[in-house]
Design a protein around this nucleic acid. Sequence first.
DNA 1: ATGAAAGCGCTAACAT
DNA 2: ATGTTAGCGCTTTCAT
Lengths: 329, 329
Amino acid sequence: MSATIRDVASAAGVSPSTVSRALAGSELVLPATRERVRRAAERLGYHPNRAARGLITGRTNNLGLIVPDLANPFFPGVVKGVQARAHESDLAVFVADTDENVSAEARLARSLAKQVDGLILCSTRLSEEELRSLTADIALVLMNRQVPGISSISVDNAGGMRQAVSHLAALGHRRVGYVAGPANSWSSSQRLRGLRSAAAEANVELIEFGNFAPHFGSGVAAADLALAAEVTAVMAYNDVVALGVLSRLSARGVAVPDQLSVVGCDDIALSAMCNPSLTTIGLPQEHAGHAAVDLLITLFDESRRDDPIDSELDTHLTVRASTGPAPST
Amino acid sequence: MSATIRDVASAAGVSPSTVSRALAGSELVLPATRERVRRAAERLGYHPNRAARGLITGRTNNLGLIVPDLANPFFPGVVKGVQARAHESDLAVFVADTDENVSAEARLARSLAKQVDGLILCSTRLSEEELRSLTADIALVLMNRQVPGISSISVDNAGGMRQAVSHLAALGHRRVGYVAGPANSWSSSQRLRGLRSAAAEANVELIEFGNFAPHFGSGVAAADLALAAEVTAVMAYNDVVALGVLSRLSARGVAVPDQLSVVGCDDIALSAMCNPSLTTIGLPQEHAGHAAVDLLITLFDESRRDDPIDSELDTHLTVRASTGPAPST
DNA sequence: ATGAAAGCGCTAACAT
DNA sequence: ATGTTAGCGCTTTCAT
């Protein structure tokens, strides 16, 4: 149906190899010939069959992106970033959502690995073993996770936590609750570590709740715990959870931030849109996506895979309406 | 690097074609042989190269999904649905986000068309002409858009509008504002039509604002218009816009729903999470995704493409905290 | 500077 | 029931 390289060749009166060279911009072809070929290709609406090319070059020009849950607005942000950058490099992107299911993730990763040049795994929960076995087969970039020997893009979780704690401390909060994320999540444990040390330094008492799944309902449940624990501020593993906290507090008639301050993490677009708007630790979602693609592209050069790069992006606290001075008791 | 069919063939002591047949589950191969082949394949970790297979079968087992903006939570819902169903049928999904940009959409559609068996275009703004030229090349399913001759999945926009208007009328609202979506959007015009006829029937006066881009900021701006127009309820083109309305009303100290009721459309997860929660017309996002994949799969059978199917899904009003009785004047 | 030939990994006739 | 052959569309030696 679609025109093949041979059609173009005969239309231009040259051989298929010349067409291939001309279209690849090879110097070895006469400018006049190249132009003739280009025009023939144009006229026939010819576009090389990527699968056929991949068969011989060993490159698909596709990349895979696996995320835990597109329903958490953090991930669409990443997807947008990955995509935008990938398309610039003429790479198409397979996207897969694991529904937070580890075995689904393993299956998807294995199956995608066969049809892409590289894979970006977002907040993966796969075991280090599995990850290492994947790297043997394919270029791999981890996002929000670090594993020795595998390249990654992560964010400065600890720094973000530190900023949030300083903010709360400055507002006079001395007793702060934390709604922890999933126990087996790398970012969750990173955040917890950063938080503990920041709290200790700032002389803030930290009350931990959880672990919780990274869902709205978790925040709803955690809000009651926070209230019972008589903290003056609550930090949550992520914005979706923080939104749950906010919702429950409102339902229970607790004024935010007058009675209780709330801090989220991720800075999803929604944080600015809800009421009260949410103070949150901003992670550069799209930028992280860009960075992941850039990193992946360097890994296409197999020789560079031996020396993994772990790159860490900055986080910034964005203060909004959900935090205020600690209530005087 | 990866094992090929020949490796399996020699390991199992048969020819490549037998391996191909055995793995395809052909009846023409001795059960014993099949088992031997299966085990050899297993042992070598063999998985057929899909690109090579596609080259000969003419099927890629990939499908493409193009959405306007993943930052609008409606679309991730669709993506999840599409993906889930596609994976069941062993199809991988390319996802592309056009950033609401028509020329980007055309480019992406053309470029994806070459590496997939079918394309799902979500809320596309492409011209009918372009769409028809695409259908010539590839199986196409439209979502939230109907074009004669092309299969589509859409929702009962008019029915949803009718439910919302009845709801408001029952609450005593007689003067209702509508924040219209983009002028060139099919669903926007559908919703407007449905709304007008429902309002007329229910004897509700309709004040139209817009057109507006489907963004949060549009709602912010429209809220002021609604206030100036002295309506008692505002309906918005979609939830993201409605959230903007809510936000601005809160900033201006207008109580929802006591002074003004607000209704959105889409039922994105956020609608239930914000404060006050949003009454909205629910569209079945994931279900629509499933339906689109199912429809696309029937179109893989080329003979069925002559007789396009337009399937319409139901919508349901979900009443939440943002609507209440009309204030007595 | 260009063409001819080989081959990527696979499946589908066509043998046997 | 299995093997042999050819060829999908392309790139890449190797010739010339």
